[in-house]
Design a protein around this nucleic acid. Structure first.
Lengths: 217, 217
DNA sequence: AATTTATCGATATAAAAGTATCGAATAAGA
DNA sequence: TCTTATTCGATACTTTTATATCGATAAATT
């Protein structure tokens, strides 16, 4: 199993989203050219990305939409669902518990955990909330190895460590904290701050530029 | 105002987060070397990134923590707060309304909008929710130009267009939909799917590799 | 005061990612 | 049937990004 460029991996869901839209619209075939036009990614890049998933296209017609969807899904391992635990059932945590899309992306939250005793025993969107003390036992018993981290920043590192100690090997990190983890543990940050940084700066650049243009009149 | 590499922009908040942590711990100075060690970013890269913000360090001691924090913040325009609107007060939308961090990153949600009449008039975390029909008027009156998009996928494109028609120039897009917008409009996707894709694939690679190693014994 | 050490910032090299070019394949139209 | 248009996939090239090297500088140590 070859290691794939991160940027390719990040583009694949974008293609997938479009393909599913096309499929709903009843389009049986789609070309790399078309995907490129819409996403703004270069055609050659799209071809390279798709090639990595192993699909082959037909000249003049492109790819079968359904086949391409399956290829990307199986490539990302989004076909069969992986069970995971969520720790931190606050605002963001609950939002994720109510987020239908996850199941379509091969992720199934089977239990959630929170320190707040008031939450313990309750259910959000069909997912039961437990106290943190139950984590170790349940994690081992159910052989869960993916954890979603949505606790407040100050508890992020400790909670991550606790997860790892109990068998979690992949952490989907929604906190802005940089997690220090042993080698072999996978951490993926959902970097809201990063994207906000890009937005803020681009906007500042744009406004600044416009002011300059105005002045020069 | 020079255009800055996206990847640099995305790393800056990470440094900032660390720096603020250091500041809380009372560390008056910090070196690029140290930031590199913790984040895993190469030293030279850290130096380049920091250089872009205009700071200068002192050999043997590094940078003043406080100064560096200010430099990054002002570089990202996170010093003075920008007002914005949020459209779609569902799970994710409400989570963002309750997300304290945003104000620390120069973003202040001044009003939210939703089609659900039941939400209209209510308040989440001090932010009032209006019907979508009020958007046009309020947006123009308050001169808002940043919009947070947290509506269901099927309404994403239409809502984005509506925002743009009323003066929004920067959209922070939390939907997985690729938005088709006129030139000059800034769209930043918070790509949960993208990060999940990386996680899924990396995990699959890891597990696959481990199985192979086991077999070879 | 001289030497060592840690860090800086600039420049140079290497690696990765993106873009362009080209021949081959296939469907549609002349 | 022959030609044309479109798309594919492979290879070559370009640009961007990341890493390494190096002299300079300032604090700490001898």
């Amino acid at each position: 199993m070859v290691s794939i460029p991160v940027l390719t991996l990040k583009r694949l869901p974008q293609y997938l989203e479009l393909l599913q839209q096309f499929q709903r619209e009843g389009q049986s075939h789609v070309s790399a050219t078309r995907l490129a036009e819409i996403t703004g990614v270069h055609v050659t890049q799209v071809r390279k990305d798709l090639a990595l998933t192993g699909v082959v296209g037909v000249p003049k017609v492109g790819h079968k939409t359904a086949e391409l969807i399956e290829a990307i899904k199986s490539f990302l391992n989004w076909n069969d669902s992986s069970s995971c635990f969520l720790v931190g059932a606050g605002h963001l945590g609950s939002a994720l518990l109510g987020y239908q899309e996850l199941s379509r992306k091969g992720l199934s939250i089977v239990a959630a955990f929170d320190t707040d005793p008031a939450l313990s025993g309750t259910t959000i969107n069909g997912v039961k909330i437990y106290g943190l003390d139950r984590f170790a036992n349940l994690c081992r018993r159910l052989h869960i190895h993916i954890g979603i981290l949505t606790v407040p920043s100050e508890h992020a590192q400790a909670t991550a460590q606790m997860m790892i100690d109990n068998g979690i090997v992949a952490i989907w990190n929604f906190t802005p904290v940089h997690l220090d983890v042993p080698e072999g543990i996978i951490v993926e940050d959902v970097d809201m701050s990063a994207s906000l940084a890009v937005l803020s700066r681009r906007l500042a650049e744009k406004l600044h530029h416009e002011t300059k243009v105005e002045r020069s009149h």
